[in-house]
Design a protein around this nucleic acid. Structure first.
Lengths: 144, 144
DNA sequence: CTCTGTGCAAAGCGTTTGCAAACGA
DNA sequence: TCGTTTGCAAACGCTTTGCACAGAG
C-alpha cells in the first residue's frame, strides 16, 4: 500500500487511502470496469462514493498511471498503464486477455504515423473475436 | 443512392430512404459521430428521429456494413467498414485520420492471438498522439 | 493552517424503450 | 396485406456538477 502512496506523491497527487486502494484494486484485477471497481472498493471501505472513483480515474489517467481501454459495445475498462500489449476481446462473453505484442510491430505502426507527420504517443490495439472458452461452448451446441 | 439500397437488400434489410441517407452521409464524412450524423441527415430530411439513427447504426453494425470506432475520452465515431487501416487520433483537437496498415502487421498480430487459442475476427488499431496542425500551434505558442 | 480531496444529493445528457402510424416488399 | 421501420415522448442509467466537511501536506 505504501508503494502506491509513494507513486501518487511522485505524480504530484495527494496520497489518500482511496487512491491507493483504487490502484491496488485495479492492479489485482487486471482489467476492471467502473461497477466492479466500485464494488470491490466498497467491500473494503463502504462509503467511498462513485464520484470519487470517477474523479480519481480521470486524474490517474491524466498522469498516465492508469489507462482507459475503450471498447466497442461494452463498458470501458481501466488498467495499470503498460504499453506493449494488445487486448483480446471476446465478442460473446466480453472477457479481455492481454496479449504481448512484438515491439517491432508497434514501432512499425508508429513509423507509419510519423510518415503522415503525426506525432504518436501510444498505440491501442484491440483484437475482437471469440475466446477459446466460448468457441468450445459453441462447438458443443452444434453437436447436440 | 440506388447503390446503397442494393447493398441494404443484399444484407436482408429493407431499403428505406433513411438507411440509404445514413450510409451516404457516413461515407461522405469518413468518420462521423452521432451528433454530426444527426445534423447532416436532418439537413436533408428534417424529421428523422434520433431513435431511428441509433437503431440503424446498430443494425448496420451487426451486418458489418459500418463499424463503430470506440475512442478514449471522446465520442465514438462510425465509418464504412474497411479492415486494413489504423486511426490516428489527435489528443488535442480530436481529429481522426486513416492510416494504411501493412497487412503483414495485422496478420502477425492475429497470429499472436491464435497462439493464445483465441479466434480473431478483426483488429482495431488506434494511435493516439498529436496531429501536425496542433503540433504547429503548440510550437508557435512556445515561441511567443 | 491551507488547499486538495471526499461524500452526498441533484442535475445533465446520451441512449434505450414503448407504442401507434407509415412504409417497403 | 403483413411485418418491419419510423417518429415522438417518456424512461433509464451513466457521468458530471455543487457544495459543505474531512484530511493531507
Amino acid at each position: 500500500m505504501e508503494t502506491y502512496k509513494t507513486l501518487l506523491k511522485q505524480k504530484g497527487l495527494k496520497a489518500t487511502g482511496q487512491r491507493a486502494l483504487m490502484l491496488k484494486t485495479i492492479e489485482e484485477d487486471g482489467h476492471i470496469d467502473i461497477d466492479a471497481l466500485k464494488e470491490k472498493m466498497q467491500a473494503v471501505s463502504p462509503n467511498i462514493s462513485l464520484n470519487t472513483i470517477y474523479l480519481n480515474l480521470e486524474q490517474l489517467s491524466n498522469e498516465e498511471v492508469i489507462s482507459k481501454v475503450s471498447l466497442n459495445n461494452q463498458k470501458s475498462v481501466y488498467e495499470i498503464t503498460k504499453h506493449t500489449h494488445a487486448h483480446l476481446v471476446c465478442k460473446i462473453c466480453g472477457s479481455i486477455e492481454d496479449e504481448p505484442v512484438d515491439l517491432n510491430l508497434l514501432t512499425a505502426m508508429k513509423e507509419g504515423a510519423i510518415a503522415s507527420s503525426f506525432k504518436p504517443s501510444f498505440v491501442a490495439v484491440n483484437i475482437y473475436g471469440i475466446c477459446s472458452r466460448c468457441e468450445n461452448n459453441q462447438t458443443n451446441k452444434e453437436k447436440k
